[in-house]
Amino acid sequence: MTYRREDFELHKKNFKNFITLFKGNPMGIIGFYIIVFFLVVALVGPILYHYNPQDFNSAHMIEAPSRQFVLGTDDMGRDILGALIYGSRVSLMIGVFATLISVFIGTLVGLVSGFIGGRLDSVLMRFTDGFMVLPKLPLIMILAALLGSSTRNIIIVLGLTSWTGTARLVRSQTLSVKQRAFIERAFAVGAGRVYIMLRHVLPNVFPLVFSNTILVTATAILTETTLSFLGLGNPMVPSWGQILRGAFTSGAVSIGAWWYFIPAGLAVIVLVLGFTFLGYSFDEILNPKLRSR
């Protein structure tokens, strides 16, 4: 089977259609710009703004914003604005890579489960259900403690624990795609199962996976922040969660050092909100049932 021109045209039309719908969705647009903003900060910020996490200075600990430190300093005398800019890199990186792992596992399990069906399906789904009910945060906390809290391990842990939703979603979507005529036709022409799965089912499942991915990223970033706050992150890497933990453990809250925890908290909220907005609006556009209303 070759990639036919009609297919391409169809995809192109769908894409154009999607863009038009997206432009009419203010929430999606806001989300998009928020993410672009943080991407730019994460990519360009560290180049333009000098920050060295080793610049400890006992003379400037928890100092209010000043000309020298626009957003004040933390409990080791370091510049908070710089930590925020560097932190955007860490938070985005953890969010994105954890999501990639999670979406990969989820899609694989969902696709195989839904497409192959039968006993394999019920075994996989039982396992998914079993995994789904495990209390997430405690599980993540235990795994983080088990593996040690390097950034890489946090990514792995988050990825390994957040795939169940994707798997369920992909499975149900696969089941419905499987019923369609063109799959039957492909079988009739003698195409292999793996081929059909990758070539026909996956592309049709993909849009939903995509909007789901964005929501998973939001959760991953939020969870990473919580994990760091609870002391299970990597304190050597300046993430937003680490800033918040510093603020909480150093008692900055009770002396009203707002600069220590308000900007970092807002950064988390706005970025997560950006991903949520975008994911939610994608969901609305791509999910035909939602759109028709």
């Binding site: 928890i62 409990d75 150093s250 008692g251 900055a252 009770s254 002396i255 050092a257």
Partner: peptide
């Protein structure tokens, strides 16, 4: 005592 609050 929270060390940041000693002065207070």
């Amino acid at each position: 005592v929270a060390t940041t609050q000693i002065d207070t």
